[in-house]
Design a protein around this nucleic acid. Structure first.
Length: 588
RNA sequence: GGUGACGUAGCUCAGUCGGUAGAGCAGGGGACUCAUAAGCCCUUGGUCACAGGUUCAAAUCCUGUCGUCACCA
């Protein structure tokens, strides 16, 4: 089969607070499962993301703490790297938006849109904080609602009556940072002529019925038909300056350069691996036969940006060639093939909210329970169709009954019988009975069935299907009872245990996108010495004026294949089998 | 306020083009013992948010209400 180019784009976390399990379940774990599957299939996978470094909230936080914005975002960038490394989110490149590379490409984006006629100037009224010499985002202003009179309405919305507001409408506005009254100031900004692109965006959305999630598509179409021009620049101190003369203090609005990160990070990845043109295979490669695909994994709050606005940028830019440099030879960008947005994960029925103490520290969780217990639970309740809920009792129960009871115990009961009765070597099978071949056939078919689900980003279903095969194997063992057979017909018992071991071998691959660590460990117990996957590492990447840390993935040692087991009789187990899955006992 | 999505067993969720409601877990019972008292078999349990409507037939289509969520210069 033809090797496919799969670009896995992951939402860029904003470097202003820690990641919690809700983020992980919604946006970070799904792409990792997806990427691991495609790597096993032998496809060329690049998975990119990074920390979103710019914007006023980071500046405000920095001011509060008396440090620079760079210090704030660097701190969270390091936390994001650590968190995702602990969970095993296998980025080919996890970078950030304050690199020279990203700045340069963002400025190219601005120039392309300007040169292509999609940006125009307009004067805007905005609230300006004289005490801080800074324009204030609407959400950082509060005052009296002009509609209902509520005196703690925010500039973007009134929490009392629910109406949307413009910060300049507030009566007695005051800064939520220091309480000082802001003033209205006019400012000239570049506006993005999104309506000029709406026809092409709608055309892009027209043929997605077959495979986009319905809610995502409805949402996108709804907006694509009626778009307004949007501010493309802001008066910002911490951002990417626009590359035009006399534009002091004007930066590209954070959202636009953040989504551009998907492109710039792919470019950076290509540089880092020493093949500077490799990114073009994904962004310019022939996608007409479906063999080159771009996926964007996000939470439901980002749907608009990733199904309409980002497409608008890509269409508006056309390509990354620079007409002002005489480079017009490049073709147009590929647009995202699918945007499998997830719903939210709540915690014990409440929304995650750090300020109200509703949060779960991911680093802490992985250290206490191991990454795979967390990955398994999040995968089995993954909010693919609607909001889901993290319930502690459910977490422990699923771990103990499914991951441990069905899967871990299946390995343990099979291998320990082999260890005790067959000198720790995979036994030589005799003739296979109908029951044997039926189970093996089921395990082989599972690669297509589960692969199909994974390819369609139905991850929760795929995990359930793998677990069903584990159950079938447990049923097989209970029906065959090799522990009895060993006493009367050693050869038949050998066959039974071989069949079970062989299906387990297949299951270590089928489960591996979800619970890679447990599967690698199970394979070592089966006697394999080579890993399915590569390894993650943190590398400091150097540019001319500054360095940055990035999370990377080295696939050179990976040997996994999305293919049924070819387990060899006689293979020596990797030592006496020991339980792989830890029981979780919650304190009462 | 506008737009969209969702509301199915105690819990987490499936239900494709309308045809007498499903799975896993929890609860109850049983046979076994290789296995981390795990696994296997059987089983209780639902007026499919509510109210109307279309239809021979609606969880499924339409309208309204309530609730939840997201997005909206």
């Amino acid at each position: 089969m033809k090797q496919e180019n799969i670009l896995v784009c992951v939402a860029w976390p904003y470097a202003n607070g820690d990641l919690h399990v809700g983020h992980v379940a919604g946006a970070y774990l799904p792409p990792d499962i997806f990427a691991r599957y495609h790597r096993l299939k032998g496809n060329r996978v690049v998975m990119v993301s990074g920390s979103d470094a710019h914007g006023t909230p980071i500046v405000v936080r920095a001011d509060k703490e008396g440090v620079t914005p760079r210090e704030v975002f660097e701190r969270f960038h390091q936390r994001f790297i650590l968190t995702q490394q602990k969970l095993g989110i296998s980025y080919d490149l996890y970078t950030h938006t304050d690199t020279e590379n990203h700045h340069a490409i963002s400025q190219q984006m601005f120039r392309k849109l300007l040169d292509n006629g999609y940006l125009f100037k307009a004067r805007q009224k905005q609230l300006y904080a004289e005490t801080q010499q800074r324009f204030l985002p609407d959400r950082l202003v509060e005052g009296t609602c002009p509609i209902c009179g509520y005196d703690k309405a925010r500039g973007d919305q009134c929490d009392n009556c629910g109406n949307l507001l413009d910060g300049t409408q507030l009566i007695n506005p005051r800064s939520r940072i220091d309480g000082a009254a802001p003033v209205v100031r006019e400012s000239e900004q570049y506006m993005w002529d999104l309506p000029a692109l709406s026809g092409r965006i709608s055309a892009y959305l027209a043929d997605k019925d077959a495979y986009w999630r319905r809610g995502v598509l409805e949402f996108a179409r709804n907006f694509a038909t009626d778009v307004q021009p949007r501010a493309f620049t802001r008066d910002l101190t911490w951002g990417i300056p626009i590359p035009v003369p006399d534009a002091e203090g004007k930066c590209i609005y954070v959202w636009w350069e953040a989504v551009l990160g998907y492109l710039s990070a792919t470019v950076e990845w290509a540089k880092v691996i020493g093949q500077p043109d490799a990114w073009k295979d994904f962004w310019y490669g022939d996608a007409s036969d479906g063999s080159t695909r771009i996926y964007n994994f996000i939470g439901k709050d980002n749907i608009l940006f990733h199904t309409v606005l980002w497409q608008g940028i890509l269409l508006g830019m056309g390509n990354l060639g620079q007409p002002w440099d005489g480079d017009t030879a490049n073709p147009v960008f590929n647009l995202p093939y699918d945007v499998p947005a997830n719903q939210y994960l709540n915690l014990g029925g409440q929304k995650f909210s750090k300020s109200q103490g509703v949060s779960l520290d991911v680093i802490d969780l992985t250290e206490k329970y191991g990454p795979d217990a967390v990955r398994f639970y999040l995968s089995s309740i993954m909010p693919e169709t609607r909001d889901a809920d993290w319930a502690w009792a459910d977490f422990a129960q699923r771990n103990n009954t499914e991951l441990l009871g069905k899967w871990g115990n299946l390995i343990q009961r099979t291998l320990s019988q082999i260890w005790k009765n067959f000198e720790g070597r995979i036994p030589e099978p005799g003739p296979l009975t109908e029951v044997d071949t039926a189970l093996i056939a089921q395990s082989e078919a599972a690669f297509d069935v589960i692969g199909d689900m994974l390819g369609k980003v139905r991850l929760r279903d795929a995990l359930g299907e793998a677990m069903a095969l584990a159950t079938a194997t447990n049923q097989y063992l209970d029906g065959q009872a090799p522990w009895k057979m060993i006493k009367v017909d050693r050869a038949r018992a050998a066959t039974q245990l071989y069949v079970a071991a062989r299906v387990i071998d297949s299951l270590t691959v089928l489960f591996s996108p979800f619970i890679p660590n447990l599967c690698e460990a199970a394979r070592r117990q089966l006697g394999y010495t080579e890993p399915l996957f590569g390894t993650q590492f943190v590398e400091t990447l150097r540019e001319a004026t500054r360095d940055h840390d990035a999370l990377r993935y080295d696939a050179s040692l990976a040997t996994g294949n999305w293919a049924p087991s070819a387990l060899k009789p006689g293979q020596a187990l990797g030592g006496e089998p020991k339980g792989l899955v830890a029981r979780i006992e919650l304190a009462a």
